[in-house]
């Protein structure tokens, strides 16, 4: 079994109001060195496959069909061993 960790984030060109609000709160906390905050989703997926390549293509399909909306989001897949 392969364990995938997927992050889904808004494309850089898309305004992220949640990230902006969190950034503002962090500044109020005194963390003024923080330049940018973007908030996305983190998804763990366990997948049965014979090799990593196969597992990756299954997770990619899951991301492009449902987990991410590619009109405005990017996804990044990492495997844990």
């Amino acid at each position: 079994m392969f364990k995938a960790k997927v992050s889904v984030t808004l494309r850089p060109s898309i305004l992220d109001p949640k990230g902006k609000a969190a950034h503002h709160a962090l500044e109020n906390l005194g963390l003024t060195n923080i330049e940018r905050v973007r908030i996305g989703k983190f998804i763990e997926i366990d997948v049965q496959a014979t090799n990593e390549e196969e597992a990756r293509s299954i997770v990619e399909l899951a991301c492009s069909k449902l987990l991410a909306n590619e009109v405005m989001e990017d996804f990044h897949i990492m495997f844990e061993f």
Partner: peptide
């Protein structure tokens, strides 16, 4: 197209 959260959340 797609829907984002309202600008002012």
């Amino acid at each position: 197209g797609a829907m984002r959260h309202n600008e002012k959340l």
